[in-house]
Design a protein around this nucleic acid. Structure first.
Length: 782
DNA sequence: GCCTTGAAGTTACCG
DNA sequence: ACCGGTAACTTCAAGGCG
């Protein structure tokens, strides 16, 4: 029979008869599981001078032949564009792939092994051309199944034309733990509450009976298997909720069987909790697509996305949970607060899911993993799919030392306010340079190779050479991505904006663009399978040449270039001149240039990568300054933003000065709420690994001592308190600080004043002017 | 021993 | 576990001074 289904999750059963498991939803909305087969294999290339036939004999007569390698064949593939005759060795159990590779690599005559380090199902998806979150059709024979229909594939799945995703059953959840000491130890502290909300907005909460959470966890497990969600979403659920539930259930001897096949979830090495047959998405990971949200709390993300909960907003400090839980009159607060959070989780999930689905489709990674994987791996997964399509062997990952190279060019701006400024930039500059000059590892010509000048493109400054023909790997991939995006955008023009299909396509084209722009970063990543320093270095060099030539052309057209960074120029907006300039740039450089934005007024402090302006639509645009930096306290950012706004809108410096003074007064008087004084910084490693005792590290150490849990990647919020010691020694986690301990002088001198002066110093304001009132008051006191 | 200075370490931004 | 360029902060150790 024929089956049409949408691929939700992918798994594998290894062993002697390995199977790929495709979990999905069919066109009737039924949940299905498709078993497909695939022969595990790897490739072996011969050393130079060794014939592939003799290598075949060597492999056949080796002891490996006795092991369960089922077939060895001579096949034609490509290795970075060069045709190679190599051996394809098939075997039974994919788990042994690395083991066979190690053995085969030791045989005389073997140059290298390929594709032995790629996960079985990943290879299946790439080779067969199955794409997660897409519809496929295939012939199957039914194998029964109760909760979901089970099929055995008779043909491999083929992508079908259908694009609309099926209705996905969502389940948002969160837990609350009773931990009087704050230690959150699953061997001791019970899960007093598990709150859930389904995609239809139905909230169900599973409460512990007093401190006995056995029943709550059991009910939750059976609820999950009854409701049978396709997507499970939490916030911080990889690190906390699911791990805690798994460990707690283990401790209690409760089966935590929330997987679709009735098994228990598995925690991967990178801290992702995988729920078989469903997609588990941790919104904390997904929120990485919202860089505007600096401090990624549930509330902040919800506010940014304008997500609201039905349940009222109740604040329960987590340290108060045990007391509330034990006080009958206060217990409902925990239930309400938790309900509120879980509703936010669902609301955020609904907003982010389309993007996550698109990223899964474009990268080819399963929905469950795509947000957990780094950008490099998403690009690489897509590249592996393309490699196979053109018979390219996937290079092995090798460990390399970082080799720095020169990047983009930045022009130093002259300080001041400029009026009527146009910003133009190149459309996807790096990808288009890579296409234009055919920059790729497989087109690179090493210095000792002899070629005629017109056969190659030579990069400026660095002199790396790349063959003009045939089209390289990166060029082929990038051209395809650009073509796909263009096609999507063409289709969008024919649909009414605001329709669901339009949104779907918009998400897709954005994901494709993101992927396209990430390829340059990928090619210079030493961990990349397709890394070649010269590729990244040459691309950047051509980029510098491009922007420098652009600046020259602008000047030739009588346009002042106020600023330039990598692929953009800021010029005075004289429409006819800008038009002519942009035309000449495009014709001489054959790269598309497009207007980005227009400032009515723009301010430069003189520093690179920092400017602020009034756009032609009246909005204030701040770039690079403290205003947009998450590691400055809100009070400093607020003051700076207001100062910028006053200076740009009314150009009334006195007004700005008076405003700053008033804030300084308020800080001095202790009238600023503590939250606005908190400095949030990321802990990039564990506190012990640091070489210096910076404030956030001292604060982090103190938080850990007080029972807080912090790991690499966590944000620490701290306050500087009064005292005469070093700043670091006065940095305390904000939760441990009382308002009267705040060192208001520090906030005035090291936060508010620098932020304000960054702007005001360019308008003749002296630091003392901001402190005048304070100075006067001190003088009076004296 | 105290103060100045600049390098080193660190974070988060821009494109 | 994506690139380099950049600003800005705090710490820390070296150097100057006496």
């Amino acid at each position: 029979m024929n089956l049409s289904f949408w691929v939700l999750d992918v798994g594998q059963k290894t062993g002697k008869n390995p199977r790929v498991l495709l979990w999905g939803i069919n066109d009737k909305g039924e949940r299905v599981l498709v078993f497909d087969t695939f022969t595990p294999h790897l490739y072996i290339t011969p050393k130079p001078g060794v014939s592939v036939e003799s290598l075949l004999e060597a492999v056949k007569s080796s002891s490996i032949e006795a092991s369960p390698i089922t077939a060895v064949n001579v096949v034609e593939r490509r290795l970075l564009g060069k045709p190679v005759k190599c051996l394809m060795a098939s075997f039974e159990d994919p788990d042994y792939s690395p083991h066979y590779a190690r053995k085969l690599e030791r045989l005389p005559g073997v140059e290298g092994c390929f594709e032995a380090d790629i996960r079985f199902y990943t290879k299946y998806l790439n080779y067969i051309g199955v794409t997660p979150c897409c519809w496929h059709t295939l012939k199957v024979s039914p194998e029964g199944g109760d909760r979901y229909k089970i099929y055995v594939a008779e043909t491999h799945p083929k992508p079908s034309g259908e694009e609309r995703p099926p209705h996905l059953k969502l389940l948002g959840f969160k837990i609350d733990v009773y931990s009087p000491t704050g230690s959150m130890n699953p061997e001791i502290d019970p899960v007093i509450l598990i709150s859930t909300v389904t995609g239809d907005g139905l909230v169900r909460q599973f409460e512990a009976e007093g401190h006995d959470d056995r029943g709550a966890i059991k009910s939750f497990v059976s609820f999950v298997s009854d409701y049978d969600p396709d997507v499970i979403v939490g916030f911080y659920s990889n690190f906390f909720d699911l791990q805690y539930l798994i460990n707690r259930a283990k401790h209690l001897g409760v089966k935590f069987t929330i997987n679709r096949d009735g098994s228990e979830p598995h925690v991967s090495v990178y801290g992702h909790v995988s729920v078989v047959g469903r997609a588990h998405i941790d919104l904390y990971d997904a929120a990485s697509i919202l860089p505007e949200v600096k401090l990624k709390t549930l509330r902040n993300i919800a506010d940014y996305l304008k997500v609201e909960a039905e349940a009222p907003r109740v604040n329960v400090d987590f340290t108060q949970v045990p007391r509330y839980w034990d006080t009958p009159s206060l217990k409902s607060r925990i239930l309400e607060a938790s309900r509120h959070d879980v509703e936010l989780i669902l609301g955020i999930a609904e907003k982010l899911l389309p993007t996550v689905v698109s990223m899964s489709q474009v990268s080819g990674m399963p929905l469950d993993q795509v947000m957990r994987a780094g950008v490099g791996f998403r690009v690489e997964n897509m590249l592996m799919r393309e490699a196979h399509a053109s018979g390219e062997l996937v290079p092995a990952r090798v460990e390399r030392a970082r080799q720095p190279y020169v990047g983009g060019y930045v022009l130093e701006p002259k300080p001041g306010i400029y009026r009527n400024v146009a910003v133009l930039d190149f459309a996807s500059m790096y990808p288009n340079i890579m296409i234009k000059f055919n920059v790729s590892p497989d087109t690179y010509v090493s210095p000792d190779e002899k070629v005629t000048d017109d056969e190659v493109h030579v990069a400026p400054e660095v002199n790396h050479r790349f063959r003009k023909e045939p089209p390289g790997f990166y060029k082929r991939v990038l051209e395809k991505l650009i073509k796909v995006r263009r096609e999507i955008r063409e289709r969008m023009k024919k649909i009414s904006p605001g329709s669901p299909d339009y949104h779907l396509l918009d998400e897709r084209q954005r994901a494709v663009k993101t992927m396209t722009n990430a390829v340059y970063g990928y090619c210079g990543w030493t961990g990349a399978k397709w890394y070649l320093r010269q590729v990244a270095e040459a691309t950047a060099a051509w980029g510098r040449e491009t922007i420098k030539k652009t600046i020259e052309i602008a000047e030739k057209h009588g346009l002042k270039v106020l600023y330039a960074d990598t692929d953009s120029v800021f010029i005075n907006n004289v429409p006819e001149k800008v038009e002519a300039f942009s035309r000449e740039v495009e014709s001489t450089l054959s790269l598309e240039m497009k207007p980005d934005k227009t400032y009515v007024k723009v301010f430069f402090s003189g520093a690179k990568k920092r400017y602020a302006g009034l756009l032609d639509d009246g909005t204030l645009d701040v770039v690079g300054f403290e205003v947009v930096r998450g590691d400055w306290p809100e009070i400093a950012r607020e003051v700076q933003e207001k100062v910028i706004e006053i200076v740009l809108r009314s150009e009334n410096v006195e007004e700005a000065v008076n405003y700053v003074r008033s804030i300084i007064e308020a800080v001095a008087a202790g009238q600023i709420p503590l939250e606005k004084l908190v400095v949030w910084e990321t802990l990039t490693k564990s506190p012990g690994e640091y070489k210096v005792k910076a404030p956030h590290i001292v604060a982090a150490t103190r938080l850990i001592k007080a029972g807080g849990r912090l790991e690499a990647g966590s944000k620490i919020g701290y306050i500087i308190t009064k005292g005469s010691e070093k700043i670091s020694d006065r940095a305390y986690p904000y939760s441990l600080v009382e308002p009267e301990q705040v060192d208001t002088d520090y906030y005035i001198t090291n936060q508010v004043i620098p932020a304000a002066m960054r702007v005001l110093e360019h308008f003749g304001v002296k630091e003392e002017a901001l402190l005048k009132k304070k100075a006067a008051r001190q003088a009076k006191l004296l």
